[in-house]
């Protein structure tokens, strides 16, 4: 034991290497991670866009037409194309990760992860068909 130890009133700080704010630019997998995390901003944007549409439709036919004209504006169009790319990134990463988050047992056996991922994509196809059918087919 050392006898010349110096005591200070404060707890010593642990050594931590400082991580740059831009750590996620260093590697492609980190960058993809941050892109996936940023997709949430576009999820929020789609909610806002959808609610603007609902508000327009509940007002009048004129307001609905104004919404359609607004959506043709180059800025809105670019924003929505970018948003769709992020939404697709979100959907793909989400569905591919689902088998790791969801463990389903049937008859005492664990279902293979690929089956869970496939059923998620089947859900996407089913919901998309219902939406297309509701909006495009005149009944």
């Amino acid at each position: 034991m050392r006898h010349n130890a110096v005591y200070t009133p404060y707890h010593p700080r642990w050594h931590r290497t400082r991580v740059s704010t831009y750590w996620w630019l260093g590697r492609w997998s980190y960058f993809l991670f941050i892109l996936r995390e940023l997709s949430s901003i576009f999820v929020a944007w789609v909610v806002i866009y959808l609610l603007v549409l609902v508000a327009a439709v509940s007002k009048s036919a004129v307001r609905y037409q104004q919404f359609l004209d607004w959506s043709r504006n180059p800025f809105m169009l670019s924003l929505n194309i970018l948003s769709l790319l992020f939404i697709v990134l979100h959907a793909v990463t989400w569905f591919n990760l689902a088998p790791q988050a969801m463990v389903v047992h049937v008859g005492g056996r664990r279902l293979p992860g690929s089956l869970i991922a496939i059923s998620n994509y089947a859900g996407l196809v089913a919901v998309s068909i219902v939406i297309l059918g509701l909006l495009l087919i005149r009944w």
Partner: peptide
Amino acid sequence: AALFFPAILFLFGIAFPLGWLAPPNYDHL
């Protein structure tokens, strides 16, 4: 978001504005 938004955003954000598909008329929507 993963189930509903791809179709909704594709239609109202891209396909209708670019004229790829005809948007539903007011009464229908």
